[in-house]
Amino acid sequence: MTPDKSRIAEQFINAIPHCKALNMKLTHIGDGVAEMKLPYDLRIVGDPETGVVHGGAVSALMDTCCGAAAMSHPSSPSGTATIDLRIDYMRAATPGQAIRTRAECYHITRSVAFVRATALDDDTNAPVATATGAFTVEGL
């Protein structure tokens, strides 16, 4: 991906209202790979007794990151939309820690981009969640 295309993608993603509301940030993008970070926030807690972040916030992070990876693939002309997304929750994210995710578009056709992603907290040996999804490939 050209530096220009990455900068535009970065601006586009960081300007999404829901991503701004969650303070999500794109940390890397290019050639079908995207990385994002979601800081810990008391507003997105799903279990008030433990302080663990809700799966929905992890979904938003995974969905955005997978979409960004699909868009950044050299064969992708422009935008994308999620067709389906499956998330597997391996363990609860540790309260207080940011969640980072890396998504990779591992195959793309004229119509569909296939993407997978992993989410981690500070313990990088044990994933918090993984995702697999299919995304549309929109024409120019």
Binding site: I16, P17, H18, C19, H54, G55, G56, A57, S59, A60, L61, M62, D63, T64, G67, A81, T82, L85, I87
Partner: peptide, 8 residues
């Protein structure tokens, strides 16, 4: 947002 739909 697709993530909002998923969370909902």
């Amino acid at each position: 947002h697709g993530g909002v739909t998923a969370g909902f």
